[in-house]
Amino acid sequence: MANGGPVCGPISSYSRVRILHLVQTRSERTIGELSEATGLHANTVREHLQRLIEGGYVIQTSERRTSRGRPRTLYSAATGAPDASSPVAREKAAAAARRGDLMRRMLQTEASDLGQRAINQLDALIEHLEESGFEPIIDERDLTVELTPCPHAAALPEHRPLLCRVHLGLMQGVLAEAGGPIAADCVRAAERPEECTVQLRIVPAA
């Protein structure tokens, strides 16, 4: 795509974006529900879900039944919460932290004021964004992620609001899975389609 290169990863297909939106807005969806809501064949939905599970963005559980019968498989977004955590996402975050720490030692980078856990969250976030076709620039002082030019700028205008919401949700999940004080707050309003800045924030300790 023009502006920023091709979109990759979980948001490379708009059908997959629609499925992600559905599981982000309500957990424990069935194949039948997702198929009916998207108009996609059940086998197509199943293939998209498998890709999303392998990427660490969706988790599957078995239905708890109180009556006889085979339990259905339920699908939810991997949000990093204790009951919605993906082992794939946790391992990706840990691997990103190891690579980031190694690079900082090699470059003898000065310690960040944000602290180790926050920096490792940013390691995971940067890798997720790069895998998705973005070229992120992190401002640790202002807690922003600059994603201009956005690879989604060439998408249909009516698709972009959903793309932004879904990808913000994915970013929130990546940061939560990595564990630390940083959360993704919002996508800032932009004057031009190719502009994209995500605002982060520090979550006060409970």
Rank of each mutant, 00 (worst) to 15 (best):
I138F: 05
A153C: 07
L129A: 07
I138Q: 11
L143Q: 05
C150E: 01
H159S: 13
E91M: 14
D101Q: 00
H152I: 11
R105N: 14
A93C: 08
L156D: 15
R160D: 10
Q121V: 00
N120S: 09
A94G: 08
F134V: 12
A124V: 02
C164Y: 06
D113I: 02
P151Y: 12
E158D: 12
A155F: 10
H128A: 01
A153E: 12
N120T: 05
S132E: 06
Q121R: 08
L125G: 09
L162I: 13
G115E: 01
G100H: 00
E110V: 11
A89H: 04
L125N: 06
K92A: 15
I119V: 15
E127G: 02
L122A: 10
D113S: 05
G115P: 08
C164W: 08
A96S: 07
I137E: 13
C164N: 03
L168K: 03
L107N: 10
P136G: 03
L163K: 11
L168G: 08
D142F: 13
H159Q: 15
D123N: 08
A93N: 05
L143P: 03
P149V: 12
G115C: 06
G169Q: 04
L125R: 07
G115A: 10
A94F: 08
I126L: 03
S112R: 02
R104I: 07
G133R: 00
N120M: 00
I126A: 08
D113N: 11
S112P: 06
G169M: 11
E130A: 07
L102I: 14
A124L: 01
I119N: 00
Q116D: 01
T144C: 11
A95H: 09
G133D: 10
L125K: 06
D142I: 09
H167R: 12
A155D: 13
P136M: 06
A89C: 13
L147Y: 03
L156W: 09
M106F: 05
A153L: 10
D139E: 07
C164G: 06
P161Q: 06
G169I: 02
T144P: 10
L162A: 01
D139A: 14
H167S: 12
I119W: 01
V166S: 04
